[in-house]
Design a protein around this nucleic acid. Structure first.
Length: 597
RNA sequence: CGGGAUGUAGCCUAGUGGCUAAGGCGCCUGCUUUGGGAGCAGGAGAUCGCGCGUUCGAGUCGCGCCAUCCCGACCA
């Protein structure tokens, strides 16, 4: 038998590295992080939203995961691993089998049993909890794992920012009461702040929609960048911030006082005037004096859909998330003209006046603004002086309007700014959403059977990596923060200094410093270009020239100038430089985060 | 799912119905060179996304399909 021995005794010589750098990125790459991650040999694409991590990129993933594990352990979390393939049973138990559409991939095994690819793990964790947790003595608990998820997203984009297969850290808190949940939620809030800070990113916590997760309170941690696909409303003066999907906002004073007398309704001829814009031109009134009818169709469940008739003042836009929540439906889509006429409304001239048998959801602006101009439900005619409560009554009056750039802050009234962001992580107070449906109960001290109070907390690892790359780069390549860099030192040897470089490489390794050693038979220019592209924070060059001085050349990736250190001081210099680079990231993590409550 | 774009060697590109599909990068061999993606010589590498059609002749035109990207719809 041949005894096992490592083919290679040390971690990485570039001559052995799997994966090449590319001088040019593939043509279909659009965003900078994607371009640089591909060019530097960190990732390769297999299909839409499906990527491989090459050794260099996988090391970054490993470093990020280490940071996450440390911060999760700091708040008392225990790591475990739940399967990617779930039985359909548990998804039927939770009810999400019927609620979630094609984004959840379903398949059958050879016995024709239904299975799903897990897109998140509330069901799996609840199945564990209902087996394991029996007594209040077993609470609280906090468990997490780092696991692959699959979501058949209709539109992956921007490299690793939005993908279909991805690695996620998800943790689940288990408590006997709301106070326990609040505490664990709060700890996650702090832990997430620390994770992102240590990775070199500022993440802004914003109030968010609970979406398909169910539950009550939720925050998202956003990295602000123009390539982000979420819109966040931010108030510069009081610190209010929320995802646009849920952002409330202050309402302007209506042009007419709410208690102004209601005039008699009258019909006015408005041929070929089917938009608010046309209407304001024809009648010479501002959009804020008009009522706009919006027809959507919402899925109640897989089988059932219903028409949602929304009314909002003409100067405002409907926020579909708010509307879906108000209507108690998911997946809104614009209604077809036939679906509108079916309830007696006339597309282009629609209004709730005179419509029966369909529930109307009105924005608060409708009830606070008197004498509006609305459709007459008759081709070519509108109505003047329509008043909510007199001429029609909505079944629901609530906030369904979308905050816009410049809308007043709901807290202080200053203008809100709309910014784009990438959602790096989120935290949800689930409450008993899954405990109730899946039977996670425990016996409390008082002998009563109670549902476990749960929370769910996620971080997208690949998206975090991409965001770091997006934030930290220059024209020459990546600039990894030292905490997540694939290696901390990039050792370059110039022809003729092999013996000295080799010796330094072994010393660095022995000192426990992650070193990428460029021992390739390449010209110096090639090696320096690759070093810049790969973006390891510390570069040490050994050449015949430096050997003459009994020294090595030093260069930090984020600084333009090169320095020099005595050969026998090189390891110590590297060690202290790493500490120096880590310091500001640690300080940021220790600073307390600004809260968005 | 709607709109748009693209698909030629590992990557970037040329090829505008007509001879053996062209160039650069990268790769292999040799020489030369050695501090910011060198030079010379030689070489390997392509079912031009797939299928059907039009044509004497298709990388090029038509239809269908597939794939990828962008915008929208959608989305923890």
């Amino acid at each position: 038998m041949i005894p096992y021995r490592a083919i290679q005794e040390v971690p990485m010589r570039m001559s052995q590295l799997f994966g090449q750098t590319l001088r040019e990125a593939p043509a279909d790459v659009e965003v900078e992080s994607h371009r640089l991650l591909v060019r530097s040999g960190c990732i390769r694409q297999l299909g839409a939203g499906i990527f491989s991590y090459l050794p260099l990129g996988w090391r970054v993933v490993g470093k990020i995961q280490t940071v996450i594990r440390q911060e999760m352990e700091r708040i008392g979390a225990q790591e475990l691993l739940m399967p990617v393939v779930n039985t359909a049973d548990i998804w039927k138990d939770s009810g999400r089998w019927d609620v979630i559409g094609p984004e959840l991939t379903r398949f059958k095994d050879r016995q024709e049993r239904d299975l799903v690819l897990a897109m998140t793990h509330e069901e799996a964790v609840s199945d564990l909890v209902r087996q394991e947790i029996r007594s209040y003595r077993q609470l609280p608990r906090l468990i997490y794992h780092l696991q692959t998820k699959w979501r058949d997203d209709p539109r992956p984009r921007a490299g690793l920012i939005r993908v279909r297969e991805f690695i996620m850290k998800d943790s689940y808190s288990l408590d006997r009461d709301d106070a326990g949940l609040d505490l664990q939620y709060d700890r996650h809030y702090q832990a997430y702040h620390r994770v992102f800070s240590r990775c070199g990113l500022d993440a802004l916590a914003v109030k968010s929609d609970v979406g398909m997760m169910g539950g009550k309170v939720a925050h998202e941690f956003m990295y602000l960048t123009p390539i982000g696909e979420d819109t966040i409303m931010i108030c510069a003066s009081c610190g209010f911030r929320a995802n646009r999907q849920v952002a409330a906002f202050g309402r302007d004073e209506p042009d007419v006082r709410a208690d102004a007398p209601a005039f008699d309704i009258e019909e006015v001829s408005t041929p070929d005037t089917t938009s608010i814009e046309d209407l304001t031109k024809l009648l010479g009134v501002p959009a804020s004096r008009t009522a706009k009818a919006v027809f959507m169709v919402g899925q109640v469940n897989d089988a059932e859909a219903k028409l949602v008739f929304a009314v909002i003042r003409g100067d405002l836009e409907v926020n579909e998330t708010k509307l879906a929540n108000a209507a108690g439906v998911r997946a809104l889509r614009p209604a077809q003209p036939e679906e509108i006429t079916a309830v007696g409304a006339v597309p282009g001239y629609a209004s709730p006046v005179g419509i029966d048998g369909v529930s109307v959801i009105a924005d608060v602006s409708i009830s606070t603004t008197p004498n509006l101009i609305a459709g007459a439900n008759r081709q070519g005619y509108h109505l003047r002086n329509v008043n909510h409560g007199r001429d029609f009554t909505a079944s629901v009056v609530t906030d369904i309007a979308a905050a816009q750039d410049g809308s007043p802050c709901p807290e202080c009234g200053s203008p809100l700014a709309a910014r784009r962001g990438v959602e790096l992580g989120n935290i949800f107070k689930l409450g008993t959403r899954y405990s109730d449906s899946m039977g996670c109960f425990f016996l409390d001290e008082d002998g009563e059977r109670k549902p476990v109070i749960m929370g769910s907390y996620g971080i997208g690892v690949g998206r975090l990596l991409a965001s770091i790359a997006e934030e930290h780069n220059d024209k020459d390549g990546l600039l990894w923060p030292v905490t997540v860099a694939p290696y901390t030192v990039h050792l370059v040897v110039i022809n003729g200094a092999e013996n000295e470089a080799e010796r330094l490489y072994l010393e660095l390794e022995r000192a426990g410093i992650d070193t990428l050693y460029d021992d390739r038979d390449e010209r110096p220019g090639v090696k320096f270009k690759d070093a810049d592209l790969i973006g390891i924070p510390i570069r040490i060059t050994v050449s015949p020239r430096t050997i003459e001085q009994r020294a090595v050349e030093t260069k930090l990736r984020h600084e333009p100038d090169r320095g020099s250190v005595a050969m026998d001081q090189a390891v110590e210099w590297a060690r202290s430089t790493i500490a120096l680079l880590e310091q500001p990231l640690g300080e940021r993590a220790n600073a307390s985060p600004a809260r968005a409550d």
